[in-house]
């Protein structure tokens, strides 16, 4: 399953090689952060949890047997932490939508287009991103996770099955319902704006 580079990296991580761990964090931080940001909808929360994910990996790397890709295992650890954090946040009855990408102009620029965009295009991209993020947060946690893994992280069904532990049929049917739910949210919002 693992290629030679990954095997070497895992060996170094198991030896608690600090330089290797730093390189590992730099390699995976964007993917982990993006997953958590889209799941939680809160940048500060996602950053904090992403750090906890890496600390957890540092501690539990001995448990990685190498029977899946390292990236799949990392996503699995991140998804598990995320589910626990959501439960914790629900218990605290916290509004996770508050502060989403707040004051982050660079993010809005990134979310627009690679080429320089006119202000109205930037605004439109920002609105689209915000609307989609709200739509994601309106889904239940399981559906949201599947949408993020498939549509944002572009993972294969095999990888998603390995991360979630769900059979293919369940992944596809839940994903279908999630997409329908997301579309319904967007259309409802558009109808509301037209009125």
């Amino acid at each position: 399953m693992l290629d030679a580079d990954e095997r070497e990296l895992v060996q170094k991580l198991k030896a608690r090689d600090e330089a290797a761990f730093s390189a590992f964090v730099l390699k995976y931080q964007e993917r982990v952060f993006r997953l958590l940001l889209r799941m939680l909808g809160d940048r500060a929360e996602a950053e904090d949890l992403a750090q906890e994910v890496f600390i957890s990996i540092f501690k539990s790397i001995d448990g990685f047997r190498g029977d899946s890709q390292l990236s799949t295992w990392v996503y699995r650890v991140a998804a598990n932490h995320c589910r626990n954090r959501i439960k914790y946040l629900v218990r605290r009855r916290r509004q996770v939508t508050d502060g989403y990408e707040e004051g982050d102009e660079q993010s809005h620029a990134n979310a627009a287009y690679a080429r320089p965009a006119a202000p109205d295009q930037l605004m439109e991209a920002k609105q689209t991103e915000q609307l989609l993020q709200e739509g994601l947060l309106s889904l239940d946690e399981e559906q949201r996770e599947l949408i993020v893994l498939r549509e944002v992280e572009h993972l294969s069904y095999e990888e998603i099955m390995a991360i979630t532990g769900l059979p293919e049929g369940t992944v596809k049917s839940r994903l279908h319902r999630a997409r329908a739910g997301l579309r319904e949210h967007i259309e409802r919002n558009e109808r509301g704006r037209k009125r």
């Binding site: 993006r34 992403a50 990408e101 990134n110 979310a111 994601l136 572009h154």
Partner: peptide, 9 residues
């Protein structure tokens, strides 16, 4: 949704 601002953890 796949485009997020850089992060340094």
């Amino acid at each position: 949704l796949g485009r997020v601002s850089e992060v340094d953890l």
